[in-house]
Simulated scan of single mutants.
Amino acid sequence: RIGEWIIEHLMDPIFYNYYGPWVVGVVNSFSPDGLLHDILIGQSTVESLDFMQSFGLLTTGLYVPFDMVLPFVITFYFMLSLLEDVGYLPRLAVLVDTGLHKLGLHGSAVVPTILGFGCNVPGALATRVMETGKQRFIAATLMAIAVPCMAQSAMIFGILGRYGVKWIFIVYCTLFMLYIFIGLLLKKIVRGESPELLLEVPPYRKPDPATLLKKTWTKAYGFLAEAVPFVILGVFIVNLMHVSGVIGVLSTVFAPVLTTLLGLPEGAIVALIMGFLRKDIAIGMLLPLGMSPQQLTISCVILSTYFPCIATFVILLRELGIRDMLKAAGLMITVSLSVGTLMRLVLIGI
């Protein structure tokens, strides 16, 4: 609710009433049409601003991270910092310890999971708190498959929210069930030990408002520093792929999988490719395809499960090693195709 309020009453007015007309006017002053114009602002005009579907570097490239994602990221990091400063996270680890033991983990696995909801990169790094290789593999794999980062969640809410809460519920309910099912499966098939949790629970503390705001700002700034370059790069690559005809070739090659198994349009291949760079911008790329709520829901689940973004992939490769990373990647792709096909049968039909 807080994030939506910030978008509706602060960010959207800034982009649509001030930034949009200004940037369109500036670009039109030196490039009224042509390739450079399309790369910078797409087909946007002062009379018809389209920040989501224009795919311009200065329109979609900035609108997605600052308007659609940042308000939700700030809200999440504020709440996470509050829990940290109060001293509740160790207590939460104790509370969920019994349940996580059934998945081959222990209560400390709640830390990478919660961090993963903010950003999968620190979540992947936080798997180091797990004592054994088995626990690290399970925690990292579950996070990569079933824990969407805050930027991705913000896009899911932004895209599916307009069609009703039930579609958002389906996405997260599916991811939760995958977390449980895959955890139970990995506990049985992955060799290794799952030791008990030994943790000192500190007393509750009164948070310092200045420190709380500073931590929130630091984490939000870190998100922007990481996200904005990838979003702009992603938008630029999509433009080049359109111009060069690569998208058409890939759509033809992967059409049987997308249309037959998953029930998605051929153009969805672009989002799947871009998901390796940034999953949030990949979800944003679904909007111009004119998909139904059912197709968008399936796409959001597939993008959440099929492969981590490149930053998370690099961290997981370093933490798990090549062999375990390949195992995890194979599981991700298998789960994504299987769940996507099942959801297509349930939501769309044969």
Rank of each mutant, 00 (worst) to 15 (best):
F117D: 09
M177V: 08
E193N: 10
W217V: 12
D38G: 07
I182C: 01
A154Q: 08
T75N: 14
L142Y: 00
W5S: 13
T59E: 04
S304V: 09
Q295N: 08
K327C: 05
G20S: 00
G234Y: 07
S304P: 05
L186H: 00
S194E: 01
S29K: 00
G248P: 04
L287W: 12
I168G: 08
Q53M: 09
V110I: 14
L262W: 10
A255W: 12
E4F: 12
R318Y: 01
V121F: 08
P13G: 07
A124M: 07
G87I: 08
Y172A: 05
I310Q: 10
M68Q: 14
F307T: 06
G349H: 06
Y88I: 15
Q43H: 14
L303A: 04
L199G: 07
A311S: 07
A210S: 11
E47H: 01
I182H: 00
I237Y: 12
C173M: 15
P203C: 03
F157T: 05
C309S: 07
L89T: 14
L258C: 08
A124Y: 00
G340K: 04
I182E: 01
C119E: 10
I237L: 15
W167I: 03
I350R: 08
G104R: 04
L233N: 08
G158D: 04
I14F: 15
R191P: 08
V228G: 05
Y63A: 11
G267I: 05
L160E: 02
D324A: 03
V335N: 02
L303R: 05
L184A: 02
T334P: 03
M177I: 09
M285P: 06
M11E: 13
E196Y: 02
N28S: 06
